Amino acid sequence: DYYQTLGLARGASDEEIKRAYRRQALRYHPDKNKEPGAEEKFKEIAEAYDVLSDPRKREIFD
């Protein structure tokens, strides 16, 4: 679930989605986080943001 990936509730505003993405992206960015799995988590976060930030894709997902 993309909302869960970003730590959001369904119905989150565009601003909340953007804030959550930035927070998670900084936390799991491969240059900042060298833990195994961080790069994969970063890709999941980017995919979630891509879907939720686009109104058309978000409507299909919801």
Score class of each variant (00 low, 15 high):
45 I>L: 11
41 K>C: 07
30 P>A: 12
12 A>F: 01
12 A>C: 12
38 A>Y: 02
20 A>S: 09
58 R>T: 02
33 N>C: 15
42 F>N: 07
59 E>G: 06
42 F>E: 06
38 A>D: 13
55 P>E: 09
13 S>C: 08
44 E>L: 12
23 R>N: 15
21 Y>C: 03
12 A>N: 01
29 H>T: 12
6 L>K: 00
46 A>R: 14
49 Y>W: 14
23 R>E: 13
1 D>M: 08
62 D>R: 09
35 E>M: 12
24 Q>C: 14
46 A>Q: 04
30 P>N: 13
1 D>N: 11
27 R>L: 15
26 L>P: 03
54 D>C: 11
51 V>A: 07
10 R>A: 09
35 E>W: 13
7 G>N: 05
37 G>M: 10
7 G>T: 02
6 L>Q: 02
16 E>T: 04
10 R>V: 09
62 D>P: 09
53 S>K: 12
4 Q>W: 07
14 D>S: 11
8 L>F: 00
45 I>G: 02
57 K>D: 03
2 Y>F: 03
6 L>C: 00
55 P>R: 11
52 L>S: 02
60 I>M: 11
26 L>M: 07
12 A>G: 02
17 I>R: 00
49 Y>M: 12
34 K>C: 06
40 E>D: 09
14 D>H: 08
54 D>F: 01
25 A>K: 09
26 L>E: 15
60 I>Y: 07
26 L>N: 02
45 I>R: 01
58 R>F: 01
20 A>E: 09
42 F>D: 04
28 Y>C: 11
2 Y>R: 03
39 E>M: 14
22 R>G: 13
36 P>L: 11
15 E>P: 06
12 A>R: 00
17 I>T: 02
56 R>Q: 08
56 R>I: 07
27 R>S: 13
10 R>P: 08
55 P>F: 03
18 K>Y: 10
18 K>R: 10
46 A>D: 11
62 D>N: 07
38 A>G: 11
25 A>L: 13
11 G>N: 07
5 T>W: 05
30 P>H: 05
57 K>P: 04
22 R>E: 15
53 S>V: 12
40 E>A: 14
49 Y>N: 08
20 A>C: 09
36 P>S: 12
34 K>A: 15
41 K>Q: 08
2 Y>S: 06
47 E>P: 00
8 L>K: 00
22 R>Y: 10
26 L>I: 15
13 S>P: 10
14 D>G: 07
9 A>N: 09
1 D>H: 07
43 K>G: 13
22 R>P: 03
1 D>W: 00
11 G>H: 10
2 Y>P: 07
6 L>Y: 00
43 K>L: 02
33 N>D: 07
42 F>I: 09
42 F>A: 07
15 E>L: 07
55 P>I: 06
54 D>H: 14
17 I>N: 00
51 V>N: 11
49 Y>K: 05
52 L>F: 02
41 K>E: 05
4 Q>E: 02
6 L>P: 01
60 I>G: 13
16 E>R: 03
44 E>H: 13
38 A>N: 09
29 H>I: 06
20 A>F: 01
15 E>M: 08
31 D>C: 14
51 V>Y: 07
36 P>M: 15
39 E>S: 13
33 N>V: 09
30 P>Q: 15
35 E>N: 08
32 K>R: 14
8 L>C: 13
25 A>C: 06
33 N>I: 08
28 Y>V: 07
18 K>N: 10
18 K>F: 10
6 L>G: 00
28 Y>K: 07
1 D>A: 03
48 A>W: 00
26 L>C: 10
55 P>T: 09
39 E>R: 14
46 A>I: 05
51 V>S: 09
57 K>L: 03
14 D>V: 12
39 E>F: 09
21 Y>S: 03
22 R>N: 09
3 Y>P: 02
28 Y>N: 05
59 E>Q: 04
51 V>G: 05
18 K>A: 12
60 I>H: 05
22 R>W: 10
32 K>T: 03
5 T>M: 10
17 I>P: 00
3 Y>V: 00
35 E>C: 13
41 K>Y: 06
49 Y>D: 05
35 E>V: 13
5 T>E: 06
4 Q>A: 04
61 F>L: 04
52 L>A: 02
25 A>W: 14
14 D>N: 11
45 I>E: 01
18 K>G: 09
37 G>Y: 08
37 G>N: 08
27 R>G: 12
58 R>Y: 02
48 A>T: 01
34 K>Q: 07
62 D>A: 10
3 Y>C: 00
39 E>P: 14
60 I>D: 13
26 L>G: 14
51 V>C: 15
25 A>H: 03
12 A>P: 01
62 D>F: 06
35 E>S: 11
7 G>A: 06
16 E>S: 08
21 Y>P: 05
37 G>A: 10
10 R>D: 10
20 A>Q: 06
10 R>T: 10
5 T>H: 15
3 Y>T: 02
18 K>E: 08
23 R>P: 02
51 V>K: 01
21 Y>T: 03
58 R>D: 01
28 Y>E: 05
51 V>R: 06
48 A>N: 02
3 Y>L: 01
9 A>Y: 02
60 I>N: 13
28 Y>T: 04
